[in-house]
Amino acid sequence: MKASKKSHMIECNIETKRGVFIPIAWHISPMEDEMNQTVGIVAVGRDLTERRKLETQLLQSQKLAALGVMAGGIAHEIRNPLTICSSAAQFLRDDIVDTDFRKECAEKIYKGINRISTIIENLLKFARPSVKSAMSCINIISLIQETITLVAHQAGIQKIKIKTSFLTEATEVNGIPSLLQQVFMNLLLNAMNAMPDGGILDISLKIIEDGVAVRISDTGHGIPKKYIDKIFDPFFTTSKIGKGTGLGLSLCYSIINQHKGTIDVESIEGKGSIFTIKLRRT
C-alpha cells in the first residue's frame, strides 16, 4: 500500500469477547503527509452481519422458489402421462374391449410410462451428475463436430444452414464426453427448435485465457427478456406439452458447473440467441 498509494478492500472476521465471529468489510486507505509520504493508514470497518443474514434469507427464499417451480413442474409433467396411463388401464379393466382398442390402450400406457421414466432420469442426472472419475482428456472440437453430424440431417430438412469456425486445431479439455455431448446436443436442438422456418446456426470455438469458449448462436425467435433469468431453472419451459420438459437447459447448467465451467446466454427477441460455454483446458 505504501508503494501503490491505493485504497484496499478486504473482508475478515473479528472475534468478540464472547467468542462470536463478526464479518467485517475493511476499507483501508493510505494517510499521507505534506510530502506525499505515507505515514499511516485509515481503516474503516463495516459490520456485515445484517447483510450476511439478508443474503442467507434471500438464498433460502430463492431455494424455496426453485422448489416451488420444481414441484409444480413435476406435478404437471408427470401427472399428465399418469392420467393417460390410469385412464387407459381403467378402460382395459372395466370394458369389454376389442383387440385394436386394447392395443391402443397398451401403447398409450407404455408411452406414458416411458415419458415419466425419462423425466425421472433427467431429474436424477440433474440432482446427481456422474462421478468425477469418469473424466478424461477429450478433443472438444471432435466432440462438437460429432454432435453436429447427428443433427445435420434434421437441420437440412428445416432449411437451417450450419456454419462452423474453429480457430484452432486439436483442443483438449478435461471432461466426461457423454455429458458434454449431451450439453451440445441440447443447445443445438434448442437452437434448431427456435428456427422452425430456417435460419443460420453458427458454432465457433476460440481459445481464451485459461480455456476454451464455445459459442452457439441462432437466428431464431429469441428469448423474451422476462424469461432470461429463468431459463436455467428446472422445469421452466415455454415449449408445448410433450415437446419439452424444461430440464434440458438446467441439465446443461448442472453439467457445465460440474466441469467447473460457465454457461451464459444473450438473446434478442425476434433476432436470436447466443449461448457461450467456457471450459478449462487440460
Binding site: 401427472r79 399428465n80 399418469l82 392420467t83 396411463c85 390410469s86 385412464s87 381403467q90 378402460f91 372395466d94
Partner: peptide, 8 residues
C-alpha cells in the same frame, strides 16, 4: 375441480 390422474 378434478385432480389428475382422475378416476373415469
Amino acid at each position: 375441480f378434478i385432480s389428475k390422474p382422475f378416476r373415469n
